[in-house]
Nucleic acid binder design. Sequence first.
DNA 1: CGGGCGGCCTGGAGGC
DNA 2: TGCCTCCAGGCCGCCC
Length: 275
Amino acid sequence: MPELPEVETVRIALARELQGRRIVKTRVHDSRLRFGVDVPRIETLLNDREVVQVRRRAKYLLVNLAGDDVVLLHLGMSGRLLFREPQVAREIHDHVVFTLDDLRELRFNDPRRFGMLDMFPRSEESHHPRLVHLGVEPLTSGFTAESMRRLARRSRRPIKNFLMDASKVVGIGNIYASEALFMAGVHPMRAAGRIGLERWVRLVSSVKTVLGDAITRGGTTLRDFVDTGGERGVYGERLQVYGNAGLSCPRDDGGTIRRVVMLGRSTYYCPRCQR
DNA sequence: CGGGCGGCCTGGAGGC
DNA sequence: TGCCTCCAGGCCGCCC
């Protein structure tokens, strides 16, 4: 569900609300998240701890605690982190509740339970199995046309699949892959290894623009996603092709937006201007 | 061995 | 109203 812009939207709110605060208590009501939650460890260790910093890596949230431990969270497809007053009744799928030192609660709600929660010493972060294989961050200077072209060299897989491969570049999910390819004018099925430097320049730039604009608008809410205050993201109104099969191309070039399925995921593009 | 695919879950939408 | 099928933004692990 949430891609990089949605996770970053949550990160910004968590940083604002949590940094300098203490988590005074943690209760795990359902440990059946992805990989399972080590309840005794989490409830024991995540108890009277000060939050120093909230970071993001790919679609993961990392919460640094004083004392050099890190809490790792992933929202999966349907995960939400919501601030609630303590008197508000716990809802179905509120699996983990963090109580803060201002007595508010931060609740991890996840109907589909594809999300995850882990905790480990900071020294273990660099070789954590969920993080170790991750590729470059698209909003950093390391994400360049030259490096992508090198990575894609000789790859015959479609560029859309390549862009969604987190071992190459992280954070681009199904929605923003279609949007960035449209902006760059690149056909989603074009072989990644057959994209020249000039096209990579456009593609890298489009990925940065699409993700950056989406963060500015609080992400995209198609169905489930809300920020920590329960607010929807409004980038959905900026989507050019995603979900718009049958409509005419926003470039007004006479093309009609098509939907095809790639790797089992809906993919949208204009066959006229994406080559 | 790069990369496609099944499977993990629940809930909402749409067809009948 | 109910039941059934299909679909959903992620990602691991298996297997070709």
